[in-house]
């Protein structure tokens, strides 16, 4: 019953071909990008691209709008930065009493793993609360929970409050390969990004992914067919928050800082905007969207607060005029799936 075998799904060569070509173009761009653009910037784009892809897994394929994805991104970034820089974990279990787990500073890949775990645990808790309500309430609950954890981040000692965790060392991958060199770092970030990207592609095109799409189209019918949709939604939610955690943790290694600006509600809005601009429910859309929005922020930095206004205008324009987004429009013109 859990397996859906649809003959139409087995082989869809035209879909496979267009996606394969687009993927090859993406690989080619990634191979040459650090030589034409500032590697630090490209790495930042890749972190946000993975973040947006994770977010898109929910809105694009399950129809769930999480308006608090900064929570997983930002907290994973904090945890990763802390584990790489300091290591020792102190948890207050009673006012004034601390449970201290002495750990040495971890290597970057273990730090990112800790970030992924953070995303997963937070996603499991927030997700099990949020899926108790449908539609618009889901968005409001995820936003409210993210705001709550923002206040915790502001008050917790280890996050450094307004200062954030600064001077995070890049360290040595597996204790062997130094990430101090920008190109080595870049190669590592590309590997992390591609792993996440391909994993999401695999999930979407698995029988599990088909059930998710069925829930998006008509949840009541999916329930009537015997699917426990709440479980599917929760698993999808946790997958998404885990990947958002990976993205946030990787960003902490890349930027060498974890700051409060990654946990605020504006960040949750930004990832929505990236996905919307690129194209909801397209595989490559979030990547393009992250690139477009970050480039815009970078180029328009001199205009200060007007950037917020411009982002608002883009939001309005996307919703009113082109809901398919950039990649969705291209796919529509070329009559392919991307």
């Amino acid at each position: 019953m859990e397996r859906v075998v649809d003959p139409l799904m087995k082989k869809n060569t035209s879909r496979d071909r267009s996606i394969a070509i687009a993927f090859l173009i993406l690989l080619a761009v990634l191979a040459v990008a650090p030589f034409y653009a500032y590697p630090q910037f490209v790495m930042q784009v890749l972190c946000f691209a993975l973040f947006a892809c994770a977010f898109n897994l929910l809105i694009g394929y399950v129809g769930l709008l999480s308006f608090g994805h900064a929570l997983y991104f930002g907290w994973a970034s904090y945890v990763c930065a802390h584990m790489i820089k300091i290591g020792t974990i102190s948890i207050p279990y009673w006012p004034g009493a601390w449970l201290v787990i002495p750990l040495p500073p971890l290597s970057p890949e273990l730090g990112i793993l800790a970030g992924a775990l953070t995303g997963a645990v937070l996603g499991l808790v927030a997700g099990s609360l949020a899926i108790r309500r449908q539609g618009i309430y889901f968005a409001m609950i995820t936003l409210a929970l993210a705001q709550m954890m923002y206040f915790f981040a502001l008050q917790a000692k280890f996050t450094g409050g307004e200062d954030g965790i600064q001077g995070v060392p890049r360290g040595k991958l597996f204790g062997l390969i130094s990430l101090a060199d920008p190109y080595t770092m870049y190669a590592f970030v590309v590997v992390v990004f591609l792993a996440g990207f391909l994993f999401i592609y695999r999930v979407i095109h698995s029988p599990f992914g088909e059930v998710l799409k069925a829930i998006r189209e008509n949840e009541a019918r999916a329930i009537s067919l015997g699917y426990k949709t709440d479980r599917y939604k929760l698993v999808a939610f946790v997958l998404s928050t885990t990947l958002a955690g990976v993205a946030g943790a990787t960003k902490a290694v890349v930027m060498q800082i974890a700051s409060i600006s990654d946990v605020v509600w504006q960040m949750s809005g930004e990832v929505v905007l990236m996905t919307l601009v690129g194209g909801l429910g397209t595989i490559f859309g979030p990547v393009i969207g992250a690139f477009v929005i970050l480039t815009m922020q970078y180029k328009l930095a001199a205009f200060g607060e007007w950037v917020t206004v411009i982002q608002g205008v883009i939001f309005v324009a996307c919703v009113l005029l082109f809901r398919r987004g950039i990649v969705g429009e291209i796919a529509n013109i070329l009559r392919v799936k991307l």
Partner: peptide, 13 residues
């Protein structure tokens, strides 16, 4: 929700 979020960003900005 997305449209009014955009409007909120514009007004606040």
């Amino acid at each position: 929700l997305l449209l009014t979020f955009g409007i909120a960003l514009i007004i606040e900005g």
